[in-house]
Amino acid sequence: MTLAYDTESHAAPLAIAEVMERLGVKMNYAKDEEIFAQDEDADLVHLLVSGAVRTTRLLSDGRRQVGCFYYPGDLIGLETHAIHRFSAEAICPSTVMVVRRSALRAFAGDGHLDRAIWEAARRELERTQEHLLVLGRKTACEKVASFLMGLAQREPAERVQMPMSRQDMADYLGLTIETVSRMLTQLQGAAVVEFDGSRKFKVTRWEALEQMAA
């Protein structure tokens, strides 16, 4: 199978993806299985082929903070330092292409790898900014509405797949799981979104969702 990744969708630069396909090993991870640990040596490069991944960090008081969500085509945890600041776990059954950074550098050349690191750093900055904007929303409803709008914009389909759990959403938004569930119920009750089970939804009133997320 040939993997195609492009920079327009914020995926891995094509040259690096091709090299990783040649040199890499595909690793399959079950739901909630750890891919790499917080403070672990960052000597591997990970490219998500299928599934979805979350990064998390345990805080000093024992709480869990979800840092980001990753989707197929994303480079995961490509650090500029020697260790991973976050751990990464599969949200659902996922396949990850794994290559040693030294092997990738030797094959692709320093220039290609440096550009890949720069591109990954740029995307991480965008993700951080998006996360800060969501956390900066004043109310819980605004935070949840903004999160759902981001998912719907990422996956332009009538029914949007939501791979993360309510707890993942809560730990990402800085809310309790009870608050997240209550806000989702309110949004569905107001006919802004329509859920098909717990992991799939449809935006039925896009303007109303945008207003709530503004």
Rank of each mutant, 00 (worst) to 15 (best):
E130Q: 13
Q153G: 11
R199H: 08
W206M: 07
R199G: 02
T55K: 03
R122S: 08
A108K: 02
R64A: 10
D32I: 00
M27T: 06
L173H: 01
A116W: 03
V192A: 04
C92L: 11
R105D: 03
V19H: 09
F36A: 02
R182K: 07
M169L: 05
K26L: 15
Q129Y: 14
I177G: 00
G109Q: 03
A30L: 11
F36D: 01
L104C: 02
M162Q: 10
T2Q: 12
K143G: 01
A108I: 09
M97I: 14
A17W: 06
T7R: 00
I35H: 06
K31A: 12
L173C: 00
E194N: 11
L14A: 08
I16K: 07
F147Q: 02
G51R: 07
E124G: 04
S9T: 15
A157S: 14
H112Y: 05
M149R: 13
D32C: 04
R54G: 06
C141I: 05
V66Q: 00
E155H: 08
L135Q: 04
Q211F: 02
A190F: 02
V53Q: 11
S50H: 07
T176F: 05
R64F: 10
V25I: 15
T204K: 15
K31V: 08
R105T: 14
R166E: 11
D41F: 00
A12M: 13
D6H: 13
W206H: 09
F86S: 03
